[in-house]
């Protein structure tokens, strides 16, 4: 499948995921094996009202979705994937009011497992808010059989 076609499909896919909609996730960048997803700041997603900092649980949804999107974008995988495991390290508090952007890369694919890592930033692109690494299930590209 052509990359542009896949990007459109992934964009449409994100739009129909109810939870991605609730977090207002948007596909901001896409190339084979790499995806970028934005999550706007929202008071509902705050972990600590005293500081206004986003909760880790909101960041993890962004990381999980972005990692999955990077796997889907990889030429050696199909359009279906599920997360096997995901580890997130929280480097620092996200600055209240700023949009979060996750960039994920699918850096290795076997017949059964895809490995992806992701980094999330706010406006300060020099200091990540969080990093994540995960393993995802692999389906074969469209039209291929095992």
């Amino acid at each position: 499948m052509a990359a542009e076609n896949l990007e459109e499909r992934l964009k449409a896919f994100l739009e129909i995921l109810p939870y991605a909609g609730a977090l207002k996730l948007r596909l901001a960048g896409f190339e084979p094996g790499r995806a970028e997803i934005e999550m706007p700041y929202d008071a509902h997603l705050v972990g600590d009202p005293e500081t206004g900092v986003l909760h880790g649980g909101a960041v993890s949804a962004l990381m999980d979705t972005c990692g999955g999107a990077a796997v889907m974008s990889h030429p050696d995988t199909g359009f279906i994937t599920a997360t096997l495991d995901l580890r997130i390290d929280y480097m620092r508090a996200a600055t209240p009011g700023q949009m979060l952007v996750a960039v994920a890369e699918c850096y290795h694919v076997t017949r059964s497992v895809a490995f992806a890592r992701a980094t999330a930033f706010d406006d300060d692109r020099a200091h990540p808010v969080a990093t994540a690494a995960g393993a995802f299930t692999v389906s074969l590209p469209d039209g291929q059989v095992a």
């Binding site: 995921l17 109810p18 939870y19 991605a20 977090l23 979705t65 999955g68 599920a82 997360t83």
Partner: peptide
Amino acid sequence: REMLIGNPMIPALHGGVTSAFLEV
């Protein structure tokens, strides 16, 4: 709630919901 669904075709809870629930 419907909002917690990831893929409506399956349908299953979004992985981000599951991890957030565990973390909270």
